[in-house]
Design a protein around this nucleic acid. Structure first.
Lengths: 223, 223
DNA sequence: TCTATTATAATAGTATTACTTTTATATTTG
DNA sequence: CAAATATAAAAGTAATACTATTATAATAGA
């Protein structure tokens, strides 16, 4: 698995960057350290200037790779979901419908615990960022234009894959897309609550968001 | 109902404002027009200066009511959930457990279609704002401190009310809090998708987020 | 090897933001 | 009517989110 992924280049929509950050050392350091810095100080406090200082480079150089910090977040988000999608496709490949959906839920809802080390991207921390910052990538006034421009295509493709798995199990269920999108957002939200609002979630280290979502989805489709 | 609410003052945590906006004409205009302006240009584009211009007042005067635009959002969010909570309590008052949860889901997930006109707050537009901006009130680096300070108490109380209703129906279900929090966030999210990402939701004007969530919750508790 | 191209860094500058402070002028209250 | 309070106006500040210009370094092609 790891070796398979190590040979794959994660592909994100080209419009998300000015210059492909994978194409140079500086670009990779920008991505690598933006993940660490956003985790440290939050996306709202994050600036290209601070990032420049951190990587011993200049603010203006960062702008040669990303048009804005918002686009950098969109890039990180797309990268994350593309990485999840690869796992989704490979790890569920030969399973029957029930096993497949269950495995898929595990993949998209689990806490990432190991940095796969095949790249400059620390997936453990990127996962943390997604829990806290992902919704900021689409809760904007530009969402419709950016959606038209294909900025969210990978995320939507994952929802569609989940939707199809749901349909395969219960073709009569009339909310397959809504259930699929709830799996993704609901999971991120439960992870957030587990970290910051423990009184309004049952999730903890023993009873995970994965357990909750699995129970929710499988019972819903059974009924 | 309407007349009942018209006599009630919505109470939000005092720390959220510097001076109670309900205590003066200017305060009310600040709240009233901040709702309209945030809806118009989004919370990110919203500034006290623009608001001042809009209400024929000054930026510095707005600061006498709210410490920051973030606190204003927290205020609006608390106001909204307090308003929802009143409806929740009154409208489900005398119902049996099953009817009660069903009615509660309707109340917290429905699209607000009528401005009740009992105040300076336009609930239809405030509901729209909550769909797009509510998560920004807690997805910050200050969330733990603000949570400690009681800024999210009303929201959490609603989740607890829903949790108790869930428990009353199925005491064996082990995720009552997570399900309750999913009702609230999941509903807002489906409303957002319905408006901006129609390909990853089944919700539309005929099949509403309420229908989806009801189906999800009731099937889950039945199983 | 020289030259041209490209990448990066440094510097400065801009409009705006999210405030704070000070002062002036209304308005309300005792 | 004076004192207190509320509001408005103006100016200032540090930081943000960029853009533009120029200088320097690295690399690649003839």
């Amino acid at each position: 698995m790891d070796s398979l992924l190590s040979n794959l280049k994660i592909t994100v929509p080209e419009k998300l960057y000015v210059k492909d950050p994978e194409s140079s050392d500086l670009g990779k350091r920008i991505v690598q350290h933006s993940i660490l810095l956003i985790d440290e100080i939050g996306f709202d406090g994050f600036t290209f200037k601070k990032l420049g200082t951190k990587i011993g480079s200049n603010e203006s150089s960062v702008y040669r790779y990303f048009e804005s910090k918002h686009n950098l977040l969109l890039y990180l988000s797309s990268w994350y979901w593309a990485w999840i999608e690869y796992q989704l496709v490979f790890e569920t490949h030969s399973l029957n419908p029930n096993e497949k959906l269950e495995k898929a839920i595990e993949i998209v809802t689990r806490t990432i615990k190991e940095d796969s080390k095949f790249s400059h991207v620390n997936e453990v921390i990127l996962n943390k960022i997604m829990i806290k910052e992902n919704s900021k990538s689409f809760l904007t006034n530009q969402v419709d234009q950016e959606n038209k421009d294909g900025y969210f295509i990978i995320y939507k493709r994952i929802v569609h894959r989940l939707r199809d798995m749901i349909k395969a199990i219960n073709p009569k269920y009339i909310y397959p897309s809504s259930l699929a999108s709830t799996i993704l957002e609901g999971s991120l939200h439960q992870h957030f609550l587990k970290a910051h609002f423990t009184t309004i979630t049952d999730c903890n280290d023993k009873l995970t968001p994965t357990d909750f979502i699995k129970n929710l989805v499988l019972n819903t489709l059974k009924a």
